[in-house]
């Protein structure tokens, strides 16, 4: 979660886990009340995260159907890799993977750039009252439920009565013939990307900003004494200072395969459902119509494995710096 945690996990989480298991025998009982303290969390977590997690992987190898109780036991409907084979013959899956990638490519790099730019700017505002005001205004979008935020943009970007088109065409007079954003095959991606960036960049801006606030002021002073200008301070003090947070952004956002669920759902999937991502399709397959939960789970599992590989690549390419 935090950059420190990323560093910690990068040390080899599996190695750390096995080592700690081996150490159990040598440990003393210590503070017994510790078990009481962790009990509520461990119990809740085992029931509502741990069990579904393991059972969810098994479901992906079953022809599990919600309305057919005879398919519920694992052995009754075990089908090996059949779900995965079926997936790649399914046009909607291929289309969903494409949609997920488009969503990622139009959103994630721009969110990063805008968040970083805003954080660096905001870090230069010296007046604390003003900085706090900007911070609230910029992060406000982050707290809005997507179910309300996305429709706001669908109405704003409406081709006929939307305010954005009126603003571009009649107020600024810079675009005589603006597109019908939400129903055009190309502009749909721009429209949903603008809405998603608007929704997401505030939170990432906040993370970058907290990182910048934590850079010791001596470093800035040293840079000033050395006669560094604004750009040099940025390159040699600020960006290295938040390297781990940028890495955190990369690791948490590099997995594009299962991306885009709630935003697509609430924004609308566009003309001929071009925006229907893999995870949205998986939900629809699992809980609507004939409710083939096994097939839906297989899609999610495939996305999960892909994303894990992508995150692993990031760790290999950009090792975290130990503080």
């Amino acid at each position: 979660m935090t950059a420190t945690a990323v560093t910690e996990q990068e040390k080899g989480k599996f190695a750390a886990f096995f080592e700690s298991v081996r150490n159990i025998r040598r440990e003393g009982w210590g503070s017994i009340e510790g078990y009481v303290f962790i009990l509520p969390l461990v119990a809740m977590w085992m029931l509502f995260s741990g069990y579904p997690y393991i059972r969810g992987i098994l479901i992906a190898f079953q022809d599990y159907r919600m309305f057919k109780p005879e398919t519920w036991p694992i052995l009754a409907s075990f089908c090996g890799f059949e779900n995965f084979v079926k997936m790649f013959k399914d046009k909607a899956v291929i289309q969903g993977i494409k949609a997920s990638f488009n969503m990622w490519a139009w959103t994630v790099p721009f969110t990063f750039a805008l968040a970083l730019f805003t954080a660096v700017m905001l870090n230069r505002v010296r007046n604390p009252k003003l900085a706090s005001l900007y911070r609230v205004l910029i992060t406000l979008a982050w707290v809005i439920p997507e179910a309300a935020a996305m429709p706001m943009w669908t109405y704003l970007l409406d081709g006929n009565v939307g305010y954005v088109n009126y603003f571009l065409r009649d107020t600024l007079k810079i675009w005589a013939n603006p597109p019908a954003w939400t129903s055009d095959f190309f502009w749909y991606w721009i429209a949903i990307a603008v809405a998603s960036i608007w929704k997401g960049f505030g939170w990432n801006m906040l993370l970058f900003l907290l990182g910048l606030y934590n850079i010791p002021s001596e470093l800035y002073d040293a840079a000033k004494i050395d006669g560094a200008n604004g750009l040099q301070t940025l390159l040699h003090v600020e960006l290295p200072g938040i390297r781990n947070i940028m890495l955190l952004y990369l690791v948490t956002n590099v997995g594009w395969v299962g991306g885009g669920l709630v935003n697509v759902w609430t924004f609308g999937t566009g003309p001929q459902a071009i925006g229907r991502t893999l995870s949205l399709y998986s939900w629809q397959v699992s809980f609507q119509g004939t409710a083939r939960m096994g097939y839906g789970a297989a899609m999610n599992f495939f996305a999960g494995v892909c994303n894990l590989i992508l995150a692993g690549l990031v760790f290999k390419l950009f090792p975290t710096e130990k503080a």
Binding site: Q9, A16, F17, W45, L47, F48, R55, G56, S286, N300
Partner: peptide, 21 residues
Amino acid sequence: YFFIVLMFLPAGGTLMALYTL
């Protein structure tokens, strides 16, 4: 570390399994 390791393994049909639970 068991928590951390499990969080990093790929999730499959967690939502579907949660539904059955």
